[in-house]
Design a protein around this nucleic acid. Structure first.
Length: 187
DNA sequence: CCAGTGATTCTCT
DNA sequence: GAGAATCACTGGC
């Protein structure tokens, strides 16, 4: 299945389906190993109360980036999914660094591979994603999405770091990956 | 454990 | 339009 087909489907199929894909920006990035699904009927979602200036991209076409500032300090990146107007997106939570490690080390100001991309704020810094990328299409340059090499086993758990609807098991992690942002019990 | 950080959005006038 | 609460996080203690 192509990336465009994958993200145009239901966010709850797209989110686990994205595990194992490689995301590159200007040739720098890695394999997606951890994501979380959000949609409009979800109190934890930015789209829950309808479109606003910040979240308008979530209500646009699938395959685009929704980037927002978190806690005044970090950027977090989502891939918009589903039909236009449904307000669904997948939060990128962790990558396994595979391409352009030196560039990512320089951007992060550290050398430990484990800390390069294992967290939503960390991976945006490593890839150089900022508010300027809000609304950009992942189908076009400088972005590239490469399908998984082989089969991936996806584990489903509860989400991390939210205060609403914490019980919903909409976090997806590659089983056995040592690159996810933090350990959490399986749901 | 917990402090920093500032945009965003909600709730009143 | 102003004031206040909220927040899908990280790094340092």
């Amino acid at each position: 299945m192509s990336f465009a087909e994958l993200v145009s489907g239901s966010v709850h199929e797209a989110a686990p389906g994205l595990i194992g894909w490689t995301l590159l920006r200007d040739g720098v990035g890695g394999r997606i190993v951890e994501v979380e699904a959000y949609h409009q009927d979800d109190p934890a979602s930015h789209s829950f109360r309808g479109p606003t200036p910040r979240n308008r991209v979530m209500f646009g076409p699938a395959g685009h980036l929704y980037v927002y500032r978190s806690y005044g300090i970090h950027w977090c990146a989502n891939i918009v999914c589903g039909d236009v107007g449904t307000g669904a997106a997948v939060l990128l939570r962790a990558l396994e660094p595979t391409h352009g490690l030196d560039t990512m080390r320089a951007r992060r100001g550290l050398t430990d591979e484990r800390l390069l991309c294992s967290g939503p704020g960390r991976l945006t810094q490593a890839l150089g994603l900022t508010g300027a990328d809000d609304g950009a299409s992942l189908l076009d340059a400088p972005f590239e999405l490469l399908p998984p090499d082989g089969p991936t086993t996806v584990q489903r758990t509860t989400r991390v770091g939210i205060t609403q609807a914490v019980e919903q098991p909409w976090r997806y992690v590659e089983a056995g990956s040592s690159w996810s942002s933090r350990a959490r019990r399986a749901a």
